[in-house]
């Protein structure tokens, strides 16, 4: 009998499902090895069918997407019960990712923005969806919208984590190999499909040990080819991000935005990067004395547009600071 595989898409964009196909022809081998018992994106299957399975009946589950509402949480618990191995697959499940940025606002704010203040929404009666609505035809229910977004491991116990938004094809292959290759499984709680250092180890750009004197956003300056983006003043999160993607963004003149999450040993990716910038930023020669230097650094940092989106695009929900990061 083939081992059973499931994949579920909670609050996320769907890119993780697609990433499974990025292993190209290996997907055929995958289909040969596993019996895909549940994966709304690939095979037909309902929640009821899943519920009928025995506990631990599924050998391996890739869970992607963050926990945004009650439905996500119910599915997470259900899949936890039914799966021997539960993998938080992709950045949303691992650390909240972009949905996690919504933790900067309350649920009520979200509803107001989406249903009441949105220029393209016609809602003269100011209806806000509730979990239970009585209509002529009967009672309709919707999943309860949670107060905050959580990562999978903030809801249920998780066996392995796979970072990336989405995980890179080559890494997905390696992850699958971990489970089908026959070698003993890594200890529970391990992070799979990524490197053991920060991204700079994979980055081909040269670091000249220059200190940036100001920050640039992508549209403000064309970066010098082959030279470290950070030292040119572009806020590249590479040194505070786990390697594994092959530094695809920096190779293409774009800063790393940190989708592989913090490197090992770092609890708070954003804070770590901010501390590094604070240390390495050069306030300029004309800044004499501690007070002037501090003022200049304050100026530079307060000039950063959208700090939460710059430093916490992926890790906010699971960061030490949580929702306490200012927008």
């Amino acid at each position: 009998m083939k081992p059973k595989f499931a994949m579920y898409w909670a609050s996320g964009c769907g890119g993780c499902e697609i990433s499974l196909l990025e292993i190209h022809d290996q997907i055929l081998r995958f289909a040969e090895v596993f019996e895909i018992v549940f994966c709304p994106c690939l095979v037909d299957g309902k929640k009821e069918d899943l519920a009928k399975l025995g506990d631990g009946a599924i050998d391996l589950t890739f869970f992607n997407g963050a926990i945004r509402n009650q439905e996500d949480e119910d599915m997470a618990r259900l899949l936890r019960t039914k799966s021997r191995i539960l993998v938080a697959y992709g950045s949303c499940a691992m650390e909240g990712c972009v949905p996690g940025l919504s933790n900067l606002s309350t649920a009520a704010d979200h509803f107001e923005a989406v249903y009441l203040k949105n220029h393209t929404t016609v809602n003269p009666e100011a209806v806000i969806p509730g979990s239970r609505s009585e209509v002529a035809e009967g009672i309709l229910s919707l999943p309860v919208f949670a107060a905050s977004v959580r990562s999978l491991d903030q809801v249920v116990a998780v066996d392995y984590l796979v970072p990336g938004c989405p995980p890179e094809g080559v890494q997905v292959e390696k992850v699958i190999e971990t489970f089908v290759g026959g070698s003993p499984l890594p200890p529970s709680g391990s992070l799979l499909g990524a490197g053991e250092r920060a991204l700079c180890e994979e980055c081909p750009r040269v670091r000249n040990v220059r200190r940036p004197t100001r920050f640039y956003r992508a549209h403000q300056q064309i970066p010098e080819e082959g030279v470290c983006l950070l030292e040119q003043g572009f806020i590249c999160l590479g040194p505070a991000t786990r390697s594994g993607c092959g530094a695809r963004c920096p190779r293409n003149n774009m800063v790393c935005i940190g989708c592989y999450g913090p490197p090992p040993g770092v609890d708070d990716q954003g804070a770590q990067m901010i501390a590094a910038l604070g240390s390495m930023l050069d306030p300029g020669k004309d800044c004499d004395g501690e007070v002037e230097r501090t003022q200049r650094l304050d100026e530079l940092f307060s000039g950063i547009v959208d700090p939460a989106g710059t430093f916490y695009t992926f890790s906010l929900a699971k960061s030490m600071l949580g929702g306490k990061v200012g927008r």
């Binding site: 053991e196 250092r197 920060a198 991204l199 040990v209 200190r211 590479g238 390697s243 590094a276 390495m280």
Partner: peptide, 14 residues
């Protein structure tokens, strides 16, 4: 920690 340093060199001139 030599096993985890990525060689970003940020510390080098500080």
């Amino acid at each position: 920690d030599a096993d985890h340093c990525c060689g970003c060199r940020i510390c080098n001139d500080l």
